[in-house]
């Protein structure tokens, strides 16, 4: 227990909390969107993220990075990183759509009970983790350092580095884009309609299958982009990387009120900060215990989260 570090390192912990929170937010949005249309927690979403991290790694390997190079210049970095992000987004997005077809669609059409869909998703999740464990030899895989991580400038104790700025700018840009998609496009309106009342949405001519597939696609793309940011920030991945990140992102979604898009964002930043400060005080080993405790406490005392308003209430 060391509380003095909270005071001396406040700005540093705060910055890291926001950066981690931004990554959580992109994954948490996937949980919350799918929950909105299916009323189910997508247990395999964390594996979609994991798949994205390996897609990022694959791109750098194909481009010939070995991990021992000097960081590249900003122009080349932007081109390379956009390529990595796009590939990860495509890989995760298509995996998410495939997941919907394989694990959910048939059960949904049969009107099977929730337990069946949950078990099916958990099975898919385990299949993916184990597949990548076998494919990647259970090793830790390092991501090459693309960007110089020396501090650009300092704010109090916080070292502002380029990778943190990229994550923050990218994540906020994407969140804004998502908000526009949900509020402004035809399919976004479809997502809100299905979240509100699936049966009525069908009667109103909404193609529910298409809307649900599109929701999985958005969730997968966001997870893919999150995986690129994650790799830039943490520079390592492993087959089980999705599990703890998935639990954190899910906790963030619940903390903000599951099904509520803006709630998921607020919950993510709150959780990122809580994790940074609690690991500074209690030690890193207890970080996940703290996350679980938050999840349990929120579910027990305020299951609707901090912002109980659900996705369907958000009007144009």
């Amino acid at each position: 227990m060391d509380f003095s570090i909270v005071v001396s390192e406040f700005a540093s912990l705060f910055l890291d909390g926001i950066v981690v929170g931004a990554i959580y937010a992109l994954v948490a949005l996937g949980y919350t969107l799918v929950y909105g249309v299916l009323r189910l927690i997508n247990f395999a979403h964390s594996e979609i993220f994991m798949l994205g991290t390996f897609a990022c790694l694959g791109v750098t390997m194909l481009l010939g990075y070995t991990g021992y190079e000097e960081p590249i210049g900003i122009g080349l970095f932007l081109v390379t990183f956009i390529l990595i992000t796009v590939v990860a987004a495509v890989a995760s997005g298509s995996a998410a759509m495939l997941l919907e077809v394989v694990a959910y669609r048939r059960l949904r059409r049969k009107g099977a009970n929730r337990l069946s869909s949950l078990i099916s998703a958990i099975g898919a999740s385990f299949f993916l983790v184990e597949l990548f464990r076998l494919l990647t030899d259970s090793k830790d895989w390092d991501f090459p350092r693309l960007l110089d991580k020396n501090s650009l400038f300092e704010v109090s104790s916080a070292y502002v580095t380029a990778d943190k700025l990229v994550v923050l700018i990218g994540a906020f840009g994407l969140m804004f884009a998502l908000d526009r998609i949900i509020q402004g496009t035809r399919l976004g309106r479809g997502i809100r309609a299905v979240s509100q009342d699936e049966k009525t949405a069908v009667l109103m001519g909404v193609d529910v299958d298409k809307v649900i597939a599109f929701t999985f696609l958005i969730g997968g793309v966001l997870a893919g982009v999150a995986s690129a940011f994650y790799m830039l920030f943490y520079e390592a991945t492993k087959f089980n990387v999705g599990f703890l990140l998935g639990i954190s992102a899910f906790t963030a979604a619940v903390l903000g009120g599951i099904g509520n898009i803006r709630g998921a964002l607020a919950g993510s930043f709150a959780l990122g900060l809580i994790q940074q400060f609690s690991s500074a005080i209690l030690g890193y080993n207890w970080r996940d215990v703290v996350t679980f405790l938050i999840l349990v406490l929120v579910l027990l005392f305020k299951p609707t989260g901090l912002f109980g308003e659900a996705i369907q209430r958000a009007r144009v």
């Binding site: 694990a103 869909s117 078990i119 099975g123 385990f126 993916l128 184990e130």
Partner: peptide
């Protein structure tokens, strides 16, 4: 791997 697949297929 097999158990995970089995759960999806059985369901």
């Amino acid at each position: 791997l097999f158990f995970g697949l089995l759960m999806v297929v059985m369901m």
